[in-house]
Amino acid sequence: MSKFFLPVMTLWQREVVRFLRQRSRVVSALSTPLLFWLLLGSGFRASFRPPGTPEGTGYLEYLYPGIIVLTLLFTAIFSTISIIEDRKAGFLQGVLVAPVSRASIVMGQALGGTTLAVFQGALFLLLAPVAGISLSLQAVPAILAVMVLIAFALTSVGLTMAWRMESIQGFHALMNLILMPIWLLSGAFFPSAGLPSWLAWLMRLNPLTYGMAALRGCFYLGNPASAGPLPALLPSVLVTLLFAGGAFLLATMTALRKTEES
Protein backbone atom coordinates (compact mmCIF):
# COMPACT_ATOMS: atom_id res chain seq x y z
CA MET A 1 0.00 0.00 0.00
CA SER A 2 2.78 2.43 0.87
CA LYS A 3 4.08 1.91 -2.65
CA PHE A 4 1.00 3.74 -3.84
CA PHE A 5 0.44 6.21 -1.02
CA LEU A 6 3.98 7.44 -0.32
CA PRO A 7 4.30 8.94 -3.82
CA VAL A 8 0.74 10.29 -3.58
CA MET A 9 1.45 12.00 -0.26
CA THR A 10 4.77 13.43 -1.36
CA LEU A 11 3.43 14.89 -4.62
CA TRP A 12 0.39 16.23 -2.80
CA GLN A 13 2.53 17.90 -0.17
CA ARG A 14 4.79 19.41 -2.82
CA GLU A 15 1.87 21.15 -4.54
CA VAL A 16 0.73 22.70 -1.29
CA VAL A 17 4.19 23.86 -0.17
CA ARG A 18 4.92 25.36 -3.59
CA PHE A 19 1.65 27.21 -3.55
CA LEU A 20 2.23 28.68 -0.12
CA ARG A 21 5.68 29.91 -1.21
CA GLN A 22 4.22 31.85 -4.13
CA ARG A 23 2.03 34.48 -2.53
CA SER A 24 1.14 36.06 -5.86
CA ARG A 25 -0.64 32.88 -6.89
CA VAL A 26 -2.84 33.00 -3.79
CA VAL A 27 -3.85 36.59 -4.54
CA SER A 28 -4.40 36.22 -8.29
CA ALA A 29 -6.60 33.15 -8.02
CA LEU A 30 -8.88 35.05 -5.63
CA SER A 31 -8.90 38.50 -7.15
CA THR A 32 -10.44 37.65 -10.54
CA PRO A 33 -13.52 35.86 -9.16
CA LEU A 34 -13.92 38.55 -6.51
CA LEU A 35 -13.90 41.26 -9.16
CA PHE A 36 -16.33 39.29 -11.32
CA TRP A 37 -18.67 38.83 -8.41
CA LEU A 38 -18.72 42.42 -7.25
CA LEU A 39 -19.02 43.97 -10.72
CA LEU A 40 -21.46 41.49 -12.28
CA GLY A 41 -23.40 41.00 -9.07
CA SER A 42 -23.87 44.71 -8.52
CA GLY A 43 -24.24 45.53 -12.20
CA PHE A 44 -27.06 43.08 -12.88
CA ARG A 45 -28.84 43.70 -9.59
CA ALA A 46 -31.00 46.48 -11.00
CA SER A 47 -32.14 44.73 -14.18
CA PHE A 48 -32.12 41.06 -13.36
CA ARG A 49 -33.80 38.91 -10.77
CA PRO A 50 -33.13 35.18 -11.11
CA PRO A 51 -36.43 33.55 -12.12
CA GLY A 52 -37.80 30.96 -9.73
CA THR A 53 -36.04 32.36 -6.67
CA PRO A 54 -38.03 33.88 -3.81
CA GLU A 55 -38.67 37.61 -3.51
CA GLY A 56 -35.68 39.46 -2.12
CA THR A 57 -32.96 37.26 -3.68
CA GLY A 58 -30.58 39.68 -5.36
CA TYR A 59 -28.24 38.78 -8.17
CA LEU A 60 -25.25 39.26 -5.86
CA GLU A 61 -26.63 36.44 -3.71
CA TYR A 62 -27.52 34.25 -6.66
CA LEU A 63 -24.08 34.59 -8.22
CA TYR A 64 -22.22 33.95 -4.95
CA PRO A 65 -22.14 30.10 -4.99
CA GLY A 66 -21.39 30.30 -8.72
CA ILE A 67 -18.37 32.48 -8.04
CA ILE A 68 -17.12 29.95 -5.51
CA VAL A 69 -17.23 27.32 -8.24
CA LEU A 70 -15.39 29.73 -10.55
CA THR A 71 -12.71 30.10 -7.87
CA LEU A 72 -12.43 26.31 -7.67
CA LEU A 73 -12.21 26.17 -11.46
CA PHE A 74 -9.49 28.81 -11.72
CA THR A 75 -7.37 27.35 -8.95
CA ALA A 76 -7.75 23.80 -10.23
CA ILE A 77 -6.80 24.87 -13.74
CA PHE A 78 -3.83 27.01 -12.77
CA SER A 79 -2.43 24.24 -10.63
CA THR A 80 -2.61 21.80 -13.53
CA ILE A 81 -1.25 24.13 -16.20
CA SER A 82 2.23 23.96 -14.65
CA ILE A 83 2.36 20.26 -15.48
CA ILE A 84 2.88 20.95 -19.17
CA GLU A 85 6.24 22.65 -18.64
CA ASP A 86 7.13 20.58 -15.61
CA ARG A 87 6.93 17.40 -17.63
CA LYS A 88 9.46 18.52 -20.26
CA ALA A 89 11.89 20.55 -18.21
CA GLY A 90 11.17 20.26 -14.55
CA PHE A 91 10.45 18.21 -11.49
CA LEU A 92 8.03 15.86 -13.21
CA GLN A 93 10.78 14.42 -15.43
CA GLY A 94 12.28 12.86 -12.32
CA VAL A 95 8.89 11.60 -11.16
CA LEU A 96 8.24 9.89 -14.48
CA VAL A 97 11.44 7.83 -14.38
CA ALA A 98 10.82 6.76 -10.78
CA PRO A 99 9.31 3.34 -10.07
CA VAL A 100 5.85 4.68 -9.21
CA SER A 101 2.55 3.93 -10.90
CA ARG A 102 1.08 6.59 -13.15
CA ALA A 103 -2.15 6.42 -11.13
CA SER A 104 -0.34 7.47 -7.97
CA ILE A 105 1.27 10.41 -9.82
CA VAL A 106 -2.10 11.62 -11.09
CA MET A 107 -3.69 11.05 -7.68
CA GLY A 108 -1.01 13.15 -5.97
CA GLN A 109 -1.49 15.92 -8.50
CA ALA A 110 -5.29 15.79 -8.23
CA LEU A 111 -5.27 15.91 -4.43
CA GLY A 112 -2.75 18.76 -4.50
CA GLY A 113 -4.88 20.81 -6.89
CA THR A 114 -8.02 19.97 -4.91
CA THR A 115 -6.47 21.15 -1.67
CA LEU A 116 -5.45 24.49 -3.15
CA ALA A 117 -8.84 25.00 -4.75
CA VAL A 118 -10.80 24.18 -1.61
CA PHE A 119 -8.53 26.43 0.41
CA GLN A 120 -9.33 29.35 -1.90
CA GLY A 121 -13.03 28.48 -1.98
CA ALA A 122 -13.10 28.37 1.81
CA LEU A 123 -11.60 31.85 1.95
CA PHE A 124 -14.48 32.99 -0.21
CA LEU A 125 -16.93 31.53 2.31
CA LEU A 126 -15.98 34.32 4.66
CA LEU A 127 -17.81 36.69 2.32
CA ALA A 128 -21.17 34.96 2.81
CA PRO A 129 -22.55 37.84 4.93
CA VAL A 130 -21.74 40.29 2.10
CA ALA A 131 -23.84 38.09 -0.18
CA GLY A 132 -26.67 38.21 2.33
CA ILE A 133 -26.51 34.48 3.13
CA SER A 134 -26.46 33.42 6.76
CA LEU A 135 -24.61 30.12 7.06
CA SER A 136 -25.81 27.58 9.57
CA LEU A 137 -23.28 25.53 11.51
CA GLN A 138 -24.16 22.26 9.79
CA ALA A 139 -24.06 23.91 6.36
CA VAL A 140 -20.32 24.68 6.50
CA PRO A 141 -19.00 21.08 6.57
CA ALA A 142 -21.54 20.09 3.91
CA ILE A 143 -20.43 22.99 1.70
CA LEU A 144 -16.76 22.10 2.18
CA ALA A 145 -17.41 18.44 1.35
CA VAL A 146 -19.18 19.37 -1.90
CA MET A 147 -16.35 21.78 -2.71
CA VAL A 148 -13.87 18.92 -2.36
CA LEU A 149 -15.86 16.82 -4.84
CA ILE A 150 -16.21 19.64 -7.35
CA ALA A 151 -12.55 20.66 -7.02
CA PHE A 152 -11.37 17.07 -7.45
CA ALA A 153 -13.49 16.69 -10.58
CA LEU A 154 -12.33 19.99 -12.08
CA THR A 155 -8.65 19.33 -11.23
CA SER A 156 -8.97 15.94 -12.92
CA VAL A 157 -10.47 17.57 -16.02
CA GLY A 158 -7.56 20.04 -15.97
CA LEU A 159 -5.09 17.17 -15.60
CA THR A 160 -6.60 15.31 -18.53
CA MET A 161 -6.10 18.38 -20.68
CA ALA A 162 -2.64 19.21 -19.34
CA TRP A 163 -1.28 15.68 -19.88
CA ARG A 164 -2.52 15.76 -23.42
CA MET A 165 -1.16 19.21 -24.30
CA GLU A 166 2.28 20.01 -25.62
CA SER A 167 2.06 23.74 -25.03
CA ILE A 168 0.50 26.20 -22.61
CA GLN A 169 -1.01 28.15 -25.53
CA GLY A 170 -3.12 25.15 -26.47
CA PHE A 171 -4.29 24.89 -22.91
CA HIS A 172 -5.57 28.47 -22.90
CA ALA A 173 -7.57 27.81 -26.05
CA LEU A 174 -9.19 24.75 -24.47
CA MET A 175 -9.87 26.70 -21.32
CA ASN A 176 -11.87 29.33 -23.22
CA LEU A 177 -13.55 26.81 -25.46
CA ILE A 178 -14.53 24.19 -22.91
CA LEU A 179 -14.06 25.18 -19.30
CA MET A 180 -15.66 28.62 -19.34
CA PRO A 181 -18.81 27.40 -21.17
CA ILE A 182 -19.04 24.51 -18.71
CA TRP A 183 -19.06 27.01 -15.91
CA LEU A 184 -21.45 29.44 -17.64
CA LEU A 185 -23.92 26.62 -18.33
CA SER A 186 -23.81 25.08 -14.85
CA GLY A 187 -26.40 27.32 -13.27
CA ALA A 188 -23.64 29.41 -11.77
CA PHE A 189 -24.46 32.42 -13.88
CA PHE A 190 -28.18 31.99 -14.57
CA PRO A 191 -30.74 29.33 -13.63
CA SER A 192 -32.24 26.99 -16.21
CA ALA A 193 -35.81 28.12 -15.50
CA GLY A 194 -37.43 29.79 -18.49
CA LEU A 195 -34.59 29.08 -20.94
CA PRO A 196 -35.04 27.89 -24.55
CA SER A 197 -35.12 24.13 -24.46
CA TRP A 198 -31.82 23.56 -26.31
CA LEU A 199 -30.04 25.63 -23.68
CA ALA A 200 -31.89 23.93 -20.84
CA TRP A 201 -30.82 20.58 -22.31
CA LEU A 202 -27.20 21.63 -22.55
CA MET A 203 -27.34 22.53 -18.88
CA ARG A 204 -28.98 19.23 -18.02
CA LEU A 205 -26.14 17.36 -19.79
CA ASN A 206 -23.41 19.41 -18.14
CA PRO A 207 -22.00 17.41 -15.22
CA LEU A 208 -21.00 20.59 -13.41
CA THR A 209 -24.69 21.59 -13.20
CA TYR A 210 -25.14 18.97 -10.51
CA GLY A 211 -22.07 20.07 -8.56
CA MET A 212 -23.41 23.59 -8.71
CA ALA A 213 -26.85 22.41 -7.57
CA ALA A 214 -25.36 20.41 -4.70
CA LEU A 215 -23.34 23.40 -3.55
CA ARG A 216 -26.31 25.78 -3.82
CA GLY A 217 -28.45 23.24 -1.98
CA CYS A 218 -25.95 23.09 0.87
CA PHE A 219 -26.01 26.86 1.26
CA TYR A 220 -29.75 26.68 1.88
CA LEU A 221 -29.87 23.44 3.87
CA GLY A 222 -32.36 24.91 6.36
CA ASN A 223 -34.76 26.39 3.80
CA PRO A 224 -34.42 24.81 0.35
CA ALA A 225 -37.14 27.08 -1.02
CA SER A 226 -34.72 30.04 -0.99
CA ALA A 227 -32.40 28.23 -3.38
CA GLY A 228 -34.97 28.27 -6.16
CA PRO A 229 -35.79 25.25 -8.34
CA LEU A 230 -32.80 22.85 -8.45
CA PRO A 231 -32.06 19.19 -9.11
CA ALA A 232 -32.50 17.31 -5.83
CA LEU A 233 -29.53 17.34 -3.44
CA LEU A 234 -28.73 13.65 -3.06
CA PRO A 235 -28.77 12.75 -6.79
CA SER A 236 -26.73 15.89 -7.45
CA VAL A 237 -24.08 14.76 -4.98
CA LEU A 238 -24.05 11.31 -6.57
CA VAL A 239 -23.63 12.69 -10.08
CA THR A 240 -20.79 14.90 -8.84
CA LEU A 241 -19.16 11.88 -7.23
CA LEU A 242 -19.37 10.04 -10.55
CA PHE A 243 -18.05 13.09 -12.37
CA ALA A 244 -15.05 13.23 -10.03
CA GLY A 245 -14.34 9.50 -10.36
CA GLY A 246 -14.77 9.48 -14.13
CA ALA A 247 -12.59 12.55 -14.66
CA PHE A 248 -9.87 11.03 -12.48
CA LEU A 249 -9.96 7.81 -14.47
CA LEU A 250 -9.72 9.76 -17.70
CA ALA A 251 -6.75 11.77 -16.39
CA THR A 252 -4.95 8.59 -15.34
CA MET A 253 -5.55 6.95 -18.68
CA THR A 254 -4.29 10.03 -20.50
CA ALA A 255 -1.13 10.11 -18.38
CA LEU A 256 -0.58 6.42 -19.04
CA ARG A 257 -0.98 6.80 -22.75
CA LYS A 258 1.26 9.86 -22.87
CA THR A 259 4.11 8.26 -20.95
CA GLU A 260 4.13 4.61 -21.89
CA GLU A 261 3.01 4.42 -25.48
CA SER A 262 3.67 7.78 -27.10
Binding site: L6, V95, A98
Partner: peptide, 30 residues
Protein backbone atom coordinates in the same frame (compact mmCIF):
# COMPACT_ATOMS: atom_id res chain seq x y z
CA UNK B 1 14.28 1.06 -9.70
CA UNK B 2 17.86 0.53 -10.95
CA UNK B 3 18.11 3.86 -12.71
CA UNK B 4 19.43 7.19 -11.51
CA UNK B 5 18.71 9.89 -14.05
CA UNK B 6 20.27 13.32 -14.39
CA UNK B 7 18.40 15.45 -16.92
CA UNK B 8 19.74 18.18 -19.13
CA UNK B 9 17.00 20.54 -17.95
CA UNK B 10 17.09 20.38 -14.17
CA UNK B 11 14.42 18.24 -12.60
CA UNK B 12 14.69 20.09 -9.31
CA UNK B 13 11.82 22.03 -7.83
CA UNK B 14 13.32 25.50 -7.66
CA UNK B 15 10.86 26.68 -5.02
CA UNK B 16 11.88 23.96 -2.58
CA UNK B 17 15.02 23.59 -0.50
CA UNK B 18 17.79 21.12 -1.31
CA UNK B 19 16.60 18.82 1.49
CA UNK B 20 12.95 19.02 0.43
CA UNK B 21 13.90 18.04 -3.09
CA UNK B 22 15.81 15.04 -1.77
CA UNK B 23 12.95 14.03 0.52
CA UNK B 24 10.38 14.04 -2.26
CA UNK B 25 12.74 12.10 -4.47
CA UNK B 26 13.39 9.56 -1.72
CA UNK B 27 9.67 9.03 -1.18
CA UNK B 28 9.23 8.22 -4.86
CA UNK B 29 11.74 5.41 -4.41
CA UNK B 30 10.10 4.14 -1.23
Amino acid sequence: SHLGVVFQHPSLDLKLTVMENLQHHGHLYG
